[in-house]
Design a binder for these strands. Structure first.
Length: 255
DNA sequence: CATTTCACCTGGTGGC
DNA sequence: TGCCACCAGGTGAAAT
């Protein structure tokens, strides 16, 4: 018996892999408050026996490419194999999520939502106190490869960037936080980017592909520096709430 | 449709 | 010392 991470009751849990019972996982499927975007039972069964081929990033998501199973076939009847990508495990860490690799004997930390036994004998564990993280399993013969909700900020062209943001009637910071436009930028990078570019978070429809001034590389210029002097002009950094988030800026450097 | 607001969740912090 | 209000932020449902 094990305590379900969703309903907190002592229950027999499916497959011993996911620390949530089937009923709450499915009944609360889609809720914010649980980490299983794919129901735990389906997720555990889907992952079983697959090789972990590659890990990469898409926006704020970690994408694990998984190999096929012996005898597994795609829609055209072609065979999969352990070395051929056939499924994906998508991990979003939310605010406090972590992926840990441990020995099976290692004490199970509070808020451990998933425990995967690896072929090496070690365990991969997903721990997330605040439960903003998500776990999702995709079968490529059924689902599209995960592409993320928006476009990549590190490879977008200036022209695409302009096309994405021009004409919108909302604060530039709210637009930056919208993952269906540009994905991967959270509250901290939004504040820091706008400071470096010298742009007020409340500005509407601001587009200037060459507007990066490049103030600082290492330390936060504005984020969580409310009342402290601006690193450029010494004016106290201001804090407002925008799009429901703490928002920090220099009233002189950012126009 | 576009945009805004808010609930979800827990650990840490500061005030009393 | 302990209690409580409040804050942090990614997401997506609900409201506007």
């Amino acid at each position: 018996m094990q305590r379900c991470l969703n309903c907190r009751k002592l229950k027999r849990l499916p497959a011993g892999l996911m620390s949530a019972c089937a009923e709450t996982a499915s009944s609360r499927f889609g809720s914010h408050s649980q980490p299983f975007k794919t129901p735990p039972l389906e997720q555990g069964e889907g992952l079983e026996g697959r090789a972990l081929l590659q890990v990469h990033r898409v926006g704020k998501h970690i994408v694990c490419e998984l190999g096929g199973l012996e005898g597994e076939r795609n829609g055209d009847g072609a065979g999969y194999a352990p070395g051929i990508p056939a499924a994906q495990w998508i991990v979003h860490l939310g605010m406090t999520g972590r992926l840990l690799v441990t020995t099976p004997e290692a004490p199970v930390a509070p808020h451990t939502h998933a425990r995967l036994t690896m072929a090496s004998g070690r365990e991969m564990r997903f721990v997330d106190a605040r439960r903003f993280g998500r776990l999702e399993f995709r079968l490529l013969q059924r689902d599209k490869p995960f592409a993320g909700p928006g476009v990549e900020p590190l490879t977008i062209t200036p022209e695409e960037f302009v096309r994405l943001f021009r004409g919108r009637r909302l604060a530039i910071k709210a637009a930056l936080l919208n993952q269906t436009l540009l994905h991967g930028v959270g509250n901290i990078y939004a504040d820091e980017s706008l400071f470096r570019a010298g742009i007020r978070p409340k500005r509407l429809d601001y587009v200037d592909a060459a507007g990066v001034r490049g103030f600082f590389q290492l330390e936060h210029g504005v984020y969580m520096r409310t009342g402290q002097p601006c690193l450029v002009c010494s004016t106290p950094i201001r804090r407002i709430v925008l799009a429901g988030r703490g928002t920090h800026f220099c009233p002189v450097c950012q126009r």
